[in-house]
Amino acid sequence: MAKGEIVLGCLAPHPPHVVYAENPEQNEAFSEGGWETLRWGYNRLARKLKTIDYDAMVIFTPHWQTYIGTHFLGLPEFKSKSVDPVFPNIFRFNYDISVDVDLAEKMCEVAGDSGIITKMMRNPDFRIDYGTITSCHMLNPDWDKPLVTISSNRNAHYYSPEVMNEQASALGEACAKAIEESGKKVVLISSHSLSHRHFVTESPLPEDMSREHIYNHSQYVWDMKLVDLMRGGKMREVIDIMPEFTEQTIAETEAGGLTWMMAAMGYPDYPAEIYGYQSVIGTGNLIAAWDPMEATREIVL
Protein backbone atom coordinates (compact mmCIF):
# COMPACT_ATOMS: atom_id res chain seq x y z
CA MET A 1 0.00 0.00 0.00
CA ALA A 2 1.27 3.45 -0.92
CA LYS A 3 1.84 5.84 1.95
CA GLY A 4 -1.05 8.13 2.71
CA GLU A 5 -0.52 11.87 2.50
CA ILE A 6 -1.93 15.26 3.29
CA VAL A 7 -2.74 16.83 -0.06
CA LEU A 8 -3.93 20.22 1.19
CA GLY A 9 -4.37 22.09 4.47
CA CYS A 10 -7.14 24.69 4.71
CA LEU A 11 -7.74 27.41 7.24
CA ALA A 12 -11.52 27.60 6.95
CA PRO A 13 -13.37 29.95 9.31
CA HIS A 14 -16.89 28.93 10.26
CA PRO A 15 -19.02 31.93 11.06
CA PRO A 16 -22.44 30.52 10.13
CA HIS A 17 -23.05 33.83 8.41
CA VAL A 18 -21.26 32.66 5.27
CA VAL A 19 -23.55 29.65 4.88
CA TYR A 20 -26.55 31.85 5.64
CA ALA A 21 -25.39 34.29 2.96
CA GLU A 22 -25.09 31.51 0.36
CA ASN A 23 -28.71 30.38 0.84
CA PRO A 24 -28.11 26.65 0.32
CA GLU A 25 -31.27 24.55 0.32
CA GLN A 26 -30.18 22.81 3.53
CA ASN A 27 -30.39 26.02 5.57
CA GLU A 28 -33.81 27.16 6.75
CA ALA A 29 -32.97 30.84 7.10
CA PHE A 30 -33.02 33.15 4.10
CA SER A 31 -30.60 36.00 3.45
CA GLU A 32 -29.98 38.73 0.94
CA GLY A 33 -26.28 37.83 0.80
CA GLY A 34 -23.37 39.46 2.57
CA TRP A 35 -19.68 38.74 3.39
CA GLU A 36 -18.79 38.32 -0.29
CA THR A 37 -15.06 38.69 0.26
CA LEU A 38 -15.12 35.52 2.32
CA ARG A 39 -17.67 33.68 0.24
CA TRP A 40 -15.97 34.34 -3.05
CA GLY A 41 -12.68 33.28 -1.52
CA TYR A 42 -14.32 30.09 -0.32
CA ASN A 43 -15.86 29.52 -3.76
CA ARG A 44 -12.43 29.77 -5.35
CA LEU A 45 -10.84 27.39 -2.86
CA ALA A 46 -13.74 24.97 -3.38
CA ARG A 47 -12.96 25.03 -7.11
CA LYS A 48 -9.33 24.21 -6.41
CA LEU A 49 -10.42 21.30 -4.22
CA LYS A 50 -12.39 19.91 -7.14
CA THR A 51 -9.11 19.57 -9.03
CA ILE A 52 -7.42 17.63 -6.24
CA ASP A 53 -7.66 13.88 -5.80
CA TYR A 54 -8.48 13.07 -2.17
CA ASP A 55 -10.34 10.47 -0.11
CA ALA A 56 -11.48 12.33 2.99
CA MET A 57 -11.56 15.62 4.85
CA VAL A 58 -10.32 15.74 8.42
CA ILE A 59 -11.58 18.71 10.35
CA PHE A 60 -10.62 20.02 13.78
CA THR A 61 -13.46 22.06 15.28
CA PRO A 62 -13.67 24.49 18.20
CA HIS A 63 -17.40 23.81 18.54
CA TRP A 64 -17.12 20.28 19.74
CA GLN A 65 -15.40 21.11 22.97
CA THR A 66 -14.13 18.29 25.10
CA TYR A 67 -12.28 18.42 28.38
CA ILE A 68 -11.62 14.72 28.75
CA GLY A 69 -9.30 14.02 25.89
CA THR A 70 -9.72 14.30 22.14
CA HIS A 71 -12.76 12.66 20.56
CA PHE A 72 -13.34 11.41 17.00
CA LEU A 73 -16.62 10.88 15.17
CA GLY A 74 -17.05 7.13 15.01
CA LEU A 75 -20.21 6.23 13.08
CA PRO A 76 -20.54 6.07 9.28
CA GLU A 77 -23.48 8.46 8.96
CA PHE A 78 -25.03 11.37 10.78
CA LYS A 79 -28.26 12.92 9.57
CA SER A 80 -30.08 15.60 11.49
CA LYS A 81 -30.40 19.35 11.90
CA SER A 82 -27.76 21.64 13.35
CA VAL A 83 -29.04 24.84 14.96
CA ASP A 84 -26.42 27.35 16.01
CA PRO A 85 -26.89 28.06 19.73
CA VAL A 86 -25.50 31.57 19.32
CA PHE A 87 -26.96 32.57 15.94
CA PRO A 88 -30.08 30.39 15.63
CA ASN A 89 -31.72 33.14 13.60
CA ILE A 90 -29.37 32.50 10.69
CA PHE A 91 -28.25 28.87 10.91
CA ARG A 92 -30.61 25.91 11.00
CA PHE A 93 -28.95 23.44 8.67
CA ASN A 94 -30.24 20.01 7.67
CA TYR A 95 -27.22 17.81 7.20
CA ASP A 96 -26.52 14.31 5.96
CA ILE A 97 -22.83 13.50 6.31
CA SER A 98 -20.72 10.41 5.92
CA VAL A 99 -17.72 9.70 8.07
CA ASP A 100 -14.54 7.83 7.23
CA VAL A 101 -14.69 5.67 10.36
CA ASP A 102 -11.58 3.65 9.46
CA LEU A 103 -9.52 6.80 9.25
CA ALA A 104 -11.04 8.16 12.47
CA GLU A 105 -10.22 4.93 14.28
CA LYS A 106 -6.70 4.94 12.93
CA MET A 107 -6.10 8.50 14.14
CA CYS A 108 -7.65 7.67 17.50
CA GLU A 109 -5.42 4.61 17.83
CA VAL A 110 -2.16 6.33 16.83
CA ALA A 111 -2.92 9.33 19.04
CA GLY A 112 -3.70 6.97 21.91
CA ASP A 113 -0.42 5.12 21.37
CA SER A 114 1.45 8.40 21.59
CA GLY A 115 -0.01 9.10 25.02
CA ILE A 116 -2.92 11.37 24.09
CA ILE A 117 -6.23 10.71 25.86
CA THR A 118 -8.76 9.74 23.18
CA LYS A 119 -12.31 8.56 22.73
CA MET A 120 -14.40 7.43 19.79
CA MET A 121 -17.85 9.02 19.66
CA ARG A 122 -20.41 6.36 18.78
CA ASN A 123 -23.71 7.80 19.95
CA PRO A 124 -26.02 7.96 16.90
CA ASP A 125 -27.98 10.87 18.40
CA PHE A 126 -24.88 13.08 18.57
CA ARG A 127 -25.33 16.36 16.75
CA ILE A 128 -22.64 17.59 14.39
CA ASP A 129 -21.38 21.03 15.40
CA TYR A 130 -21.92 24.06 13.20
CA GLY A 131 -18.17 24.65 12.83
CA THR A 132 -17.76 21.35 11.00
CA ILE A 133 -20.82 21.97 8.88
CA THR A 134 -19.97 25.54 7.91
CA SER A 135 -16.34 24.88 6.94
CA CYS A 136 -17.15 21.65 5.09
CA HIS A 137 -20.12 23.13 3.29
CA MET A 138 -18.15 26.10 2.06
CA LEU A 139 -15.23 23.93 0.92
CA ASN A 140 -17.34 21.18 -0.59
CA PRO A 141 -20.97 22.20 -1.09
CA ASP A 142 -21.62 18.90 -2.87
CA TRP A 143 -20.85 17.01 0.34
CA ASP A 144 -19.46 14.16 -1.75
CA LYS A 145 -16.47 13.27 0.44
CA PRO A 146 -16.48 11.53 3.80
CA LEU A 147 -15.10 13.44 6.72
CA VAL A 148 -13.71 12.97 10.18
CA THR A 149 -14.37 15.52 12.88
CA ILE A 150 -11.87 15.82 15.70
CA SER A 151 -13.02 17.53 18.90
CA SER A 152 -10.99 20.32 20.43
CA ASN A 153 -9.64 19.53 23.85
CA ARG A 154 -9.60 22.79 25.77
CA ASN A 155 -6.06 22.84 27.08
CA ALA A 156 -5.97 26.62 26.86
CA HIS A 157 -8.80 26.77 29.42
CA TYR A 158 -7.34 24.19 31.76
CA TYR A 159 -3.71 25.19 31.52
CA SER A 160 -2.49 27.86 29.11
CA PRO A 161 -2.13 28.62 25.41
CA GLU A 162 1.43 27.28 25.66
CA VAL A 163 0.17 23.89 26.81
CA MET A 164 -2.49 24.03 24.09
CA ASN A 165 0.27 24.55 21.54
CA GLU A 166 2.24 21.56 22.82
CA GLN A 167 -0.75 19.24 22.96
CA ALA A 168 -2.18 20.28 19.61
CA SER A 169 1.25 19.75 18.01
CA ALA A 170 1.43 16.25 19.46
CA LEU A 171 -2.04 15.51 18.12
CA GLY A 172 -1.11 16.88 14.71
CA GLU A 173 1.97 14.67 14.51
CA ALA A 174 -0.06 11.63 15.53
CA CYS A 175 -2.74 12.37 12.92
CA ALA A 176 -0.10 12.78 10.21
CA LYS A 177 1.36 9.40 11.12
CA ALA A 178 -2.10 7.80 11.06
CA ILE A 179 -2.84 9.32 7.65
CA GLU A 180 0.45 8.00 6.33
CA GLU A 181 -0.34 4.51 7.61
CA SER A 182 -3.89 4.67 6.24
CA GLY A 183 -2.67 5.01 2.66
CA LYS A 184 -5.27 7.72 2.08
CA LYS A 185 -5.10 11.16 0.53
CA VAL A 186 -6.49 13.61 3.02
CA VAL A 187 -7.44 17.29 3.12
CA LEU A 188 -6.97 18.84 6.55
CA ILE A 189 -9.27 21.62 7.73
CA SER A 190 -8.57 23.90 10.62
CA SER A 191 -11.93 25.52 11.29
CA HIS A 192 -11.74 28.89 13.05
CA SER A 193 -11.47 32.67 12.91
CA LEU A 194 -8.26 34.50 13.76
CA SER A 195 -9.04 37.41 16.14
CA HIS A 196 -12.27 36.56 17.87
CA ARG A 197 -13.87 39.44 19.73
CA HIS A 198 -17.53 39.68 18.77
CA PHE A 199 -19.93 42.54 18.88
CA VAL A 200 -22.64 41.63 21.37
CA THR A 201 -25.34 43.29 19.32
CA GLU A 202 -26.55 42.40 15.85
CA SER A 203 -28.08 44.66 13.24
CA PRO A 204 -31.74 43.99 12.43
CA LEU A 205 -30.61 42.58 9.11
CA PRO A 206 -27.50 40.49 9.95
CA GLU A 207 -26.24 40.77 6.36
CA ASP A 208 -26.32 44.57 6.39
CA MET A 209 -22.73 45.09 5.29
CA SER A 210 -22.77 48.78 6.20
CA ARG A 211 -22.45 47.61 9.83
CA GLU A 212 -19.68 45.08 9.41
CA HIS A 213 -16.17 45.92 10.57
CA ILE A 214 -13.40 44.53 12.74
CA TYR A 215 -13.96 44.88 16.50
CA ASN A 216 -10.96 47.14 16.92
CA HIS A 217 -7.81 48.11 15.10
CA SER A 218 -5.52 46.13 17.36
CA GLN A 219 -7.27 42.91 16.31
CA TYR A 220 -6.77 43.89 12.67
CA VAL A 221 -3.06 44.61 13.10
CA TRP A 222 -2.50 41.24 14.74
CA ASP A 223 -4.44 39.42 12.05
CA MET A 224 -2.38 41.11 9.35
CA LYS A 225 0.83 40.19 11.14
CA LEU A 226 -0.21 36.56 10.85
CA VAL A 227 -1.22 36.92 7.21
CA ASP A 228 2.21 38.40 6.42
CA LEU A 229 3.99 35.52 8.10
CA MET A 230 1.82 33.02 6.23
CA ARG A 231 2.55 34.71 2.91
CA GLY A 232 6.23 34.53 3.79
CA GLY A 233 6.08 30.79 4.50
CA LYS A 234 6.97 31.30 8.14
CA MET A 235 4.59 28.86 9.77
CA ARG A 236 7.03 27.83 12.47
CA GLU A 237 7.11 31.44 13.60
CA VAL A 238 3.31 31.69 13.46
CA ILE A 239 3.02 28.72 15.78
CA ASP A 240 5.74 30.09 18.06
CA ILE A 241 3.83 33.34 18.57
CA MET A 242 0.48 31.54 18.74
CA PRO A 243 0.15 31.80 22.55
CA GLU A 244 0.68 35.55 22.46
CA PHE A 245 -1.54 36.08 19.44
CA THR A 246 -4.25 33.99 21.04
CA GLU A 247 -4.16 35.93 24.29
CA GLN A 248 -3.96 39.35 22.70
CA THR A 249 -6.84 38.88 20.29
CA ILE A 250 -8.95 36.28 22.18
CA ALA A 251 -8.30 34.32 19.01
CA GLU A 252 -10.20 31.20 18.12
CA THR A 253 -6.80 29.58 17.57
CA GLU A 254 -7.23 28.97 21.30
CA ALA A 255 -8.83 25.63 20.44
CA GLY A 256 -5.60 24.45 18.79
CA GLY A 257 -6.73 23.99 15.19
CA LEU A 258 -4.02 25.85 13.35
CA THR A 259 -1.28 24.39 15.53
CA TRP A 260 -2.66 20.89 14.95
CA MET A 261 -2.75 21.38 11.18
CA MET A 262 0.68 22.98 10.92
CA ALA A 263 2.28 20.25 13.05
CA ALA A 264 0.64 17.60 10.87
CA MET A 265 2.02 19.33 7.76
CA GLY A 266 5.51 19.75 9.22
CA TYR A 267 5.30 23.54 9.66
CA PRO A 268 5.33 24.57 5.99
CA ASP A 269 8.14 26.88 4.92
CA TYR A 270 6.42 27.69 1.63
CA PRO A 271 3.90 30.51 1.11
CA ALA A 272 0.27 30.01 2.03
CA GLU A 273 -2.37 30.67 -0.59
CA ILE A 274 -4.50 33.56 0.67
CA TYR A 275 -8.15 33.48 -0.43
CA GLY A 276 -9.71 36.29 1.57
CA TYR A 277 -9.95 38.15 4.86
CA GLN A 278 -13.09 39.78 6.24
CA SER A 279 -14.69 40.53 9.55
CA VAL A 280 -17.87 38.81 10.65
CA ILE A 281 -19.68 40.37 13.58
CA GLY A 282 -16.36 41.92 14.57
CA THR A 283 -14.18 38.80 14.36
CA GLY A 284 -11.26 38.46 11.91
CA ASN A 285 -11.63 35.66 9.38
CA LEU A 286 -8.99 34.44 6.99
CA ILE A 287 -9.30 31.75 4.34
CA ALA A 288 -5.93 30.26 3.46
CA ALA A 289 -4.51 27.04 2.12
CA TRP A 290 -1.20 25.24 2.19
CA ASP A 291 -0.47 23.23 -0.92
CA PRO A 292 2.54 20.90 -0.48
CA MET A 293 2.79 20.49 -4.28
CA GLU A 294 4.89 23.29 -5.68
CA ALA A 295 3.53 22.71 -9.17
CA THR A 296 -0.04 23.50 -8.16
CA ARG A 297 0.67 26.12 -5.50
CA GLU A 298 -0.69 29.50 -6.53
CA ILE A 299 -0.48 33.13 -5.59
CA VAL A 300 -4.20 33.72 -5.21
CA LEU A 301 -4.40 37.14 -3.58
Binding site: Y67, I68, P85, V86, D125, F126, V200, T201
Partner: peptide, 24 residues
Protein backbone atom coordinates in the same frame (compact mmCIF):
# COMPACT_ATOMS: atom_id res chain seq x y z
CA UNK B 1 -24.42 33.45 24.30
CA UNK B 2 -22.78 36.28 22.44
CA UNK B 3 -25.62 38.47 21.18
CA UNK B 4 -26.67 39.70 24.61
CA UNK B 5 -28.88 37.46 26.69
CA UNK B 6 -30.95 34.78 24.99
CA UNK B 7 -34.15 33.50 26.51
CA UNK B 8 -35.77 30.24 25.44
CA UNK B 9 -39.28 30.91 24.13
CA UNK B 10 -40.23 27.83 22.14
CA UNK B 11 -43.49 26.63 23.72
CA UNK B 12 -42.48 22.96 23.48
CA UNK B 13 -38.82 22.44 22.64
CA UNK B 14 -38.16 18.83 21.80
CA UNK B 15 -34.96 16.99 20.88
CA UNK B 16 -32.63 14.16 21.79
CA UNK B 17 -29.63 15.79 23.40
CA UNK B 18 -26.13 14.27 23.65
CA UNK B 19 -23.33 15.73 25.76
CA UNK B 20 -20.06 16.66 24.06
CA UNK B 21 -17.86 14.84 26.58
CA UNK B 22 -20.20 12.25 28.12
CA UNK B 23 -21.88 11.00 24.93
CA UNK B 24 -21.09 7.42 25.95
Amino acid sequence: SIIGHQIQAHPEPEWVHVDDDFHF
